[in-house]
Amino acid sequence: MTKNSDSKEKLDLDDISKRLEKAKKDLNIVDENTDQRSSSSIGRYMWIAFNVVSELLGGIICGFLIGYFLDYKFETKPIFICIFLLIGSIAGVLNTIRYINNYEKNNSLNEKE
């Protein structure tokens, strides 16, 4: 008897929560948790953007410095700068892609946990 009433109560609660969610959706009420998540995700995206910029800049500056050094040594300005700036840019993009891949891999692992 008690078991039956318990399960009935649970069913009622499930039904109420479903109807509440539907009503919230209809009224466009944003859940507090979702709101918090979106504000924290802004910080996370800013963080990613900052890391991406530093990875990109690292490659480009490194390429430029190597090219500048070689041009200075062989007095061929600006041939090596052009070549190594290009290679550096590609390396920067490659590092960025690796960073994003790593980030997504970690993210999906965390979500699974």
Binding site: S54, E55, L57, G58, G59, I61, C62, G63, I66, F84, I87, G88, I90, A91, G92, L94, N95
Partner: peptide, 12 residues
């Protein structure tokens, strides 16, 4: 590309 990518690590 890989060498520059490696050298850019301390820079980034």
């Amino acid at each position: 590309i890989e060498v520059i990518s490696f050298c850019s690590k301390p820079l980034s």
